[in-house]
Write a protein that binds this DNA or RNA. Structure first.
Length: 259
DNA sequence: ATGACTGGTAACACCAGA
């Protein structure tokens, strides 16, 4: 089974791009971030026509996440627990039946956190604290659990073309990295790093010729519970999609699993 | 390389992204 995450950066502006990629790759489950629409504005019919079940958690203008799956959804959960007044649509989770049990796939759009001298940065850190508590509960289930999405986090110097230029940014500074380290120390494995030690990026800015210069960063991740990591076969970053017409600034990251 | 783009909303500019 192939499971992918992709920050699509506006589903209405990228429907043609998404359809092309789904038709070419035919992934089993896809998590989208930054759909930038309310649920009613999501092009559900066009995606269903390709054989996917569709669940969304949208909001007007910004954020918003969706799960597409060839398997039927047994359960769907929306919102990150722990703070009722948080209105931002950044988490959707699905549970699916597979041979021998279930898999749980949680799709997130983790807050960017910039600028760091505004309320956006403490919001990011508080969101990561809540995410870590949520993941701790999920790990207690001892299921194959895949936490994937746009983490807005550069894990290590090798994950940026110019790490010195990023140091201090909300994506790459001690407070953010500490929260991510807690997530890993709980037992969540970075799928790409379980497969490869090579430099690899998932995002290239639209500005300053970042794509042409390969001035990228790796911020889109699949993080795996032990039961999911045991079944991981491969990870593919679909870098070529960044060069297609009207691309997102992020590319799909896909994990292949033996279930 | 010091480079500066894109979508959504609304209104003919601004905000947000990373």
């Amino acid at each position: 089974m192939r499971i992918a995450t992709w920050n699509i950066n506006g589903i209405k502006a990228r429907l043609e791009l998404l359809v092309r990629w789904l038709e070419e790759e035919k992934p089993d489950i896809v998590g989208l971030q930054e759909i930038k629409t309310v649920d009613e504005g999501f092009p559900r019919a066009e995606i269903e026509a390709l054989g996917y079940n569709v669940e969304t958690h949208g909001q007007k203008s910004w954020n918003g996440v969706a799960l597409l799956s060839k398997l039927p959804f047994d359960e769907v959960h929306r919102r990150l627990p722990g703070r009722d007044e948080d209105e931002q649509a950044r988490l959707i989770e699905g549970v699916f039946s597979v041979e021998g049990g279930v898999i749980r796939v949680c799709n997130i759009y983790l807050p960017n956190g910039n600028p760091v001298d505004t309320e956006k940065f403490p919001y990011k850190l508080e969101w990561m604290d809540r995410l870590n508590r949520f993941v701790q509960d999920r790990l207690a289930l001892e299921e194959p659990f895949i936490l994937m999405g746009d983490f807005n986090l550069i894990p290590a110097p090798i994950d940026a073309h110019d790490p010195a230029a990023w140091w201090g940014d909300a994506l790459y500074r001690p407070e953010s990295l500490e929260k991510f380290r807690i997530l890993r120390n709980m037992g969540m494995t970075d799928a790409l790093r379980a497969i490869s030690a090579e430099e690899a990026y998932t995002f290239w800015d639209f500005q300053a010729g970042a794509w042409r210069r390969n001035a990228g960063i790796r911020i889109d991740h699949l993080m795996l519970s032990p039961q999911a990591a045991d079944r991981l076969d491969d990870v593919v970053i679909h870098k070529d999609v960044r060069g297609w017409d009207k691309p997102s600034d992020h590319v799909p990251v896909e994990g292949a699993f033996s279930f």
